[in-house]
Design a protein around this nucleic acid. Structure first.
Length: 484
RNA sequence: GGCCUCAUCGUCUAACGGUUAGGACACAGGAUUCUCAUUCCUGUAAUCGGGGUUCGAUUCCCCGUGAGGCUGCCA
């Protein structure tokens, strides 16, 4: 199956569009087909510099790079690949003109000379009369000879689609099911703007036909435009693709997901440190479910399980809490070595000593299940590299039954006990054994002793365990930190 | 206003006429534990309202209500 994603380069990639692209990609992969990216840059006024590259980089990051169309090569340069090019609409200008002429010739479209001012007035009047604002077909009544004359004189005009108003257009959406629209409620859409560029509607029909798309997956906002597209396909004598309209993502107040209420740019999630595995897993589960109770999915598992039939019709609220949970789950799944490699540069940036640290992997492992995002790592590991400042208010902790007055005594017991371990035997097992003995002979509670140990070694209210930290710190540094 | 669409715990969702309405996140409590986190157990919590159809409706139909989309020479 051939599917596509067709962003317009007007800014950042909306997270909802990433999800739509993902669904299209999944369908292509599931059917061993191909996923095409086409750039819809027919609105020159809204174009944003660098937007194409950033969208493409995101797709690559997300693991859903295109097979065909506009993509990034190994060097990160924008290229086009495939037999149906060009894949950038501004380069297809002549093509749209050609097909528009055909429509005009066959009587499916007509020229319209109305100015925006007249159209505005017309709409205002219609609104006042509580009518649906629609083009009143003034220019459809024009005498052909007059049309010719005005065209020859170079008068600005657009091309409009002539909707058969008496007809009812029906089709079956892959997600919404049977749909039907009455012709008289559909407006005579502008196909070609006065600058000669096509509107989305013409471009979509021409491109998706020429690019041989089997399935068009796009946002729900296009649902009411389907009749226009179907009429166009028929006017050209082409077979329309199947359509699957995907519901929108929502803010917590159920309005359309917007910038005002949080992050909507896919880029923001990368910046925050989300794993592509977590984000894509989460996105897949918004509005879609596998029909089983599985919550975590790898991309290959998603390809296997995904079906359009199980996509929800209603919009889904974007719930960050669940995304975070998924993020934590995926963080813990990373192989220890990879995890260490990922956080190392971040830790080194704050603590240069980490660069040649032989026990870095061991340290990293201790925090893997304690952090949700990579950037938390330096904080969690800082005490290994810089001696912590430890206050008595941290060590004395009522919950652990440690009184300030007892602290010197407990520190003495700890020191004495740990000093007895030979340097070469400084491993966790010996530390546990020595401390167990100290607990038994001192009559202190395990918590009293270990809280003081851990707090002294780390300077933190929470951290990896006392035994592990002591082991990695080594005998000498452990005793040093107990001596303050 | 018109057209189209949608509606199960706070959130994401399962149940395609018969279930004590299930799971996950979040929340609360507990267990493990030297802290935090992880892990495990338990709990609170939902079928928008009203009519039908049916022996029986979350499920099918109608009417409301609420929400969303479209209504641009934007996509």
């Amino acid at each position: 199956m051939r599917t596509r994603f067709a962003p317009s380069p007007t800014g950042f990639l909306h997270i909802g569009n990433l999800r739509t692209a993902f669904f299209a990609w999944l369908m292509a992969k599931k059917t061993k087909g191909s996923f095409t990216v086409r750039i819809e840059d027919t609105d020159r006024a809204r174009e944003v510099e660098g937007a194409v590259e950033s969208v493409l980089r995101l797709l690559h990051w997300a693991g859903i790079a295109p097979d065909e169309g506009v993509m990034l090569d190994d060097a990160g340069k924008i290229i086009e690949k495939g037999k149906c090019g060009p894949y950038i609409q501004s380069k297809r200008f002549d093509l749209y003109r050609k097909y528009a002429d055909q429509l005009l010739k066959d009587g499916h479209a007509y020229r319209c000379f109305c100015t925006s001012e007249r159209l505005d007035e017309m709409r205002k009047k219609q609104e006042k009369l509580r009518q649906a604002p629609m083009y009143d077909r003034t220019c459809l009544e024009l005498d052909p000879a007059e049309v010719e004359k005005r065209v020859a004189a170079g008068e600005k005009h657009v091309l409009r689609l002539k909707i058969p108003r008496e007809e009812t257009i029906t089709y079956e959406d892959k997600i919404y099911g049977p749909m039907s629209f009455k012709g008289h409620t559909v407006d005579d859409q502008v196909l070609l703007k006065s600058d000669g560029f096509p509107t989305y509607h013409l471009a979509h029909v021409v491109d998706d036909h020429l690019m041989e798309m089997d399935l068009v997956i796009r946002g729900e906002e296009w649902l009411s435009s389907v009749p226009k597209h179907l009429i166009l396909f028929r006017a050209f004598g082409w077979k329309a693709p199947e359509y699957a309209h995907v519901s929108l993502l929502l803010n917590p107040d159920r309005s359309k997901l917007s910038k005002r209420q949080g992050d909507v740019a896919a880029e923001d999630f990368i910046k925050k440190g989300y794993l592509p595995e977590a984000l894509m897993n989460f996105l897949a589960l918004l509005g879609w479910n596998p029909g089983t109770e599985q919550e975590m999915f790898t991309i290959p598992e998603l390809i296997e399980a995904f079906t359009l039939e199980r996509i929800h019709k209603s919009g889904a609220v974007f719930d960050l809490k669940k995304l975070e949970w998924l993020q934590g789950q995926w963080m813990r799944k990373i192989p220890a070595k990879d995890f260490a490699d990922r956080i190392k540069p971040l830790v080194v940036a704050r603590f240069p000593d980490a660069e040649n640290d032989a026990s870095f992997l061991q340290k990293a492992t201790l925090i893997q299940e304690r952090i949700t995002f990579f950037p938390e790592a330096p904080d969690m590991l800082g005490f290994f590299y810089d001696d912590p400042t430890v206050g008595i208010d941290l060590i004395a902790n009522p919950k652990q039954k440690v009184e300030a007055a007892d602290v010197p005594k407990i520190l003495e017991i700890l020191k004495k006990s740990l000093e007895s371990i030979e340097e070469k035997n400084w491993i966790k097992d010996s530390i546990v054994a020595a401390l167990d003995a100290a607990i038994a002979s001192s009559g202190l509670k395990k918590g009293q002793l270990l809280w003081v140990l851990r707090a002294s070694l780390t300077g933190r209210a929470y951290s990896p365990g006392a035994y592990e930290v002591a082991e990695i710190l080594g005998k000498e540094r452990t005793l040093e930190r107990l001596s303050i």
